[in-house]
Write a protein that binds this DNA or RNA. Structure first.
Length: 671
RNA sequence: GCCGCAGUAGCUCAGGGGUAGAGCAGCGCAUUCGUAAUGCGCGGGUCGGGGGUUCAAUUCCCUCCUGCGGCACCA
């Protein structure tokens, strides 16, 4: 409950889709917005998936989706030949390729892949035709039963009874209503000796499947449900030709180079070690970045009429029982007992997993008046959640994180205006971080919910109006709101086209009730405030990870831990370099940023090496000082782009850096 | 948490039943240099933890931890 803001969520990729197996609506299903997730999010969806637009694109006139789907069949045929005991699950086309879920008596491992791939090549060379055959569903079931294809039998049973293989909640919710009557006949596609239940369409023959490569194996629960057995999912990629395949593999390598775990270590920003899984050790440079963001956010929030608070880290479990967290999230909460070994106090404390109940306590102190509203309580709240081990990922998904959280206590009538203000602020902030492309999802009332419909009408309208007033177009995300209220979810797109959900604005009329927050109205009577949970960055940890990957480590000057490095050419230039450093550090940069963050490379390396090092560290400004500069009282300015700006006075250099800091991410990348 | 894979020097990685090796980094010395790597030398490892097999384990087996790729989760 208490949908505190913050948790940047992973845009979970569409899960098992069951397309291509008698699912008449697979195309629609594929386009449905994905359910969102919390903190995680390494590889998010493409905007296209959200914008209900294209599915898998055509390339060079080739219908990639069809080809990939056919490639999945080739995979299945190869596996059946090499492992006749295999039972097949589903095998759809996906963003860059395809997969097939397969059960074998001993699970397939990556060592099996070369042999399978070789067999697939043989099948491709034989140019076997894909032969469609329409069969009555009973006959299909009998065939699958006879060949031991239990999962296919299950799929057929679903088709027979309700006309779809869609998993509820995973695929288009309308699908059930439209297709509740079931189907009488299905199609098989034959490929040599191999025959698979499939709605098609396929390429004409196996020679047309293009360039493919099996990528990896992974476990995947049958029908995406962890109560079901786990199959081995074999992932492959498939493209129209070798060149496209190569290009794709190259893109993967490039994306890997941006990996924040690699870059973050190389840049000396942070580390994580065994004894503290899922929690970050921030090094001086990383913490400098963290603080730069915090400083910026603090200023923005202050401008936005927020006041900052700090609530306790450790609170008695009784408190969490009251808030409802104990009941719902106890497994994910860290607990602590004080006292010496063997003589602990009886009280059990829990480390806060969210900030909202704490904020309500502050609201509840003293007597609140309608004149206090809206009251915007911001908190850079450090939360701990015992995330499942498999979910941890660098600093993107961690067990201890800091939210740019805030809770706005207001009246129902104030919701539209507060929403608009929030949207404005958020967009402003994203822009400063260099994210211009924004997608806003509007998640409305879920089936299971608290509160009267009239309140929901009001809340939904108010939220939507607020977003519109801020000039944002929202994408409807039906039934995905929290049980306590509707929410807006803000997804930004990074430099290589990945989407990350960061911001959120949630209306909550449950927690104020539950924790008994009230204010005295104009009428002199007690009223319940509405609570808006909201976050912009989500978690600092995750957002910093996103920044690193977005900029491939080349952080904009205003965020760079070191903004300028002084490069004295010889020892005799160090003294002057120190002078320059002092002047830079004492400068007054815009936005109250203080002085330039500067250091000196006074090592005995040659100047070329110093420049190379600064370059590798992605330092925006290299200020070279040799005889000429020392004599003229100037610095020779080199940018990390390699551009040499020539000699200028220290004041000129400061002005230039100041200008860039002032513009933040708005400045086009330096030439 | 589940499936699969991995853990060797600070980093990237090679090796393999007889107590380990490269490049980079680090340290020392020389060099004082004009926009992406100066040269020479030196040091550095309980081969993730625990247990087992063996005359002998970093290597083989079991187990735990951590990480990676997915799945599931994500208030």
């Amino acid at each position: 409950m208490g949908g505190a803001a913050g948790r940047g969520r992973r845009l979970a990729a569409r899960k098992v889709r069951f397309s291509g197996h008698g699912d008449r609506h697979s195309a629609a299903a594929r386009r449905r917005p994905a359910p969102l997730a919390l903190q995680g999010c390494r590889r998010a969806l493409n905007f296209a998936d959200f914008r209900l637009a294209k599915g898998i694109p055509r390339m060079n006139g080739v219908d990639l989706e069809r080809m990939r789907h056919s490639c999945a069949h080739v995979l299945a045929a190869a596996v059946m030949k090499l492992h006749p005991q295999a039972k097949l699950g589903v095998g759809p086309a996906i963003a860059d390729g395809f997969y097939y879920d397969i059960h074998t008596p001993t699970p397939l491992t990556s060592e099996d892949l070369p042999a399978i791939e070789a067999e697939m090549r043989r099948i491709r060379e034989r140019k076997l035709p894909f032969v469609r055959e329409d069969v009555p569903i009973e006959a299909a079931a009998a065939h699958m039963q006879a060949t031991g294809q239990d999962y296919k039998v299950e799929l057929l049973e679903m088709l027979r009874t309700r006309g779809s293989t869609a998993a509820k909640g995973l695929d288009d919710p309308n699908l059930f209503d439209n297709a509740a009557q079931g189907v009488a006949s299905v199609s098989f596609y034959g490929l040599g000796d191999f025959k698979d239940l499939c709605r098609g369409p396929h390429v004409e023959h196996s020679g047309q499947v293009g360039a493919f490569k099996l990528m990896r194996v992974a476990g995947a629960y049958w029908r995406g449900d962890n109560r079901n057995p786990q199959l081995t999912r074999v992932y492959g990629t498939c493209w129209a030709n070798e060149a496209d395949l190569k290009a794709h593999l190259f893109r993967l390598e490039e994306a890997e180079k941006r990996d924040h775990r690699k870059l973050g270590t190389a840049m000396g920003l942070f580390h994580i070690q065994e004894e503290a899984p899922g929690t970050v050790f921030w090094h001086p440079k990383g913490w400098s970045l963290f603080r730069a963001i915090e400083r910026y956010m603090r200023a923005k929030l202050e401008d936005g009429g927020y006041v900052e608070v700090k609530t306790p880290q450790l609170v008695d479990r009784v408190f969490w029982e009251k808030s409802g967290h104990w009941e719902n999230y106890r497994d994910a909460m860290f607990v602590a007992k004080p006292g010496k070994e063997g003589e602990e106090e009886d009280r059990l404390y829990a480390i806060k997993p969210m900030n909202c109940p704490g904020a309500v306590q502050i609201f509840r102190q003293g007597q609140r008046s309608y004149k206090d509203l809206p009251l915007r309580l911001a908190e850079f709240g450090a939360c701990h959640r015992y995330e499942p081990s498999g979910a941890l990922h660098g600093i993107m998904r961690v067990r201890a994180f800091t939210q740019d959280d805030a809770h706005i206590f207001c009246t129902e009538d104030q919701i539209p205006d507060e929403s608009r203000k929030f949207c404005d602020l958020l967009r402003d902030i994203y822009k400063d971080f260099g994210f211009a492309d924004l997608l806003v999802k509007f998640s409305d009332r879920p089936e299971k919910r608290a509160g009267e419909d009239a309140i929901w009408d009001k809340a939904e309208n108010a939220l939507e109006k607020g977003a519109q007033a801020a000039g944002l177009t929202t994408l409807r995300n039906p039934g995905e709101g929290a049980f306590y209220g509707p929410k807006l979810e803000f997804v930004l797109r990074d430099a290589i086209g990945r989407d990350w959900q960061c911001g959120t604005l949630q209306v909550d009329f449950v927690l104020p009730e539950r924790l008994d927050a009230s204010y005295i109205g104009e009428d002199g009577a007690k009223h319940r405030p509405v609570m808006l949970h909201r976050a912009i960055l989500g978690s600092f940890e995750r957002f910093i990870g996103i920044l690193i990957e977005n900029y491939a480590g080349r952080l904009p000057t205003w965020l760079s831990p070191i903004q300028a490095r002084l490069v004295p050419i010889a020892d005799r230039h160090v003294e002057f370099a120190k002078d320059v450093a002092k002047r830079l550090a004492r400068a007054q940069l815009p936005h109250g940023e203080g002085g330039v963050r500067v250091d000196i490379d006074d090592s005995t390396e040659r100047m070329q090496k110093k420049i190379r090092n600064a370059q590798l560290e992605q330092i925006p400004y290299m200020l070279v000082i040799g005889d000429k500069e020392a004599e003229a009282g100037k610095v020779a300015v080199r940018l990390r782009s390699g551009k040499d700006l020539g000699a200028m006075t220290v004041d000129e250099a400061i002005a230039r850096i100041a200008q860039e800091v002032d513009a933040r991410a708005d400045l086009p990348a330096p030439a």
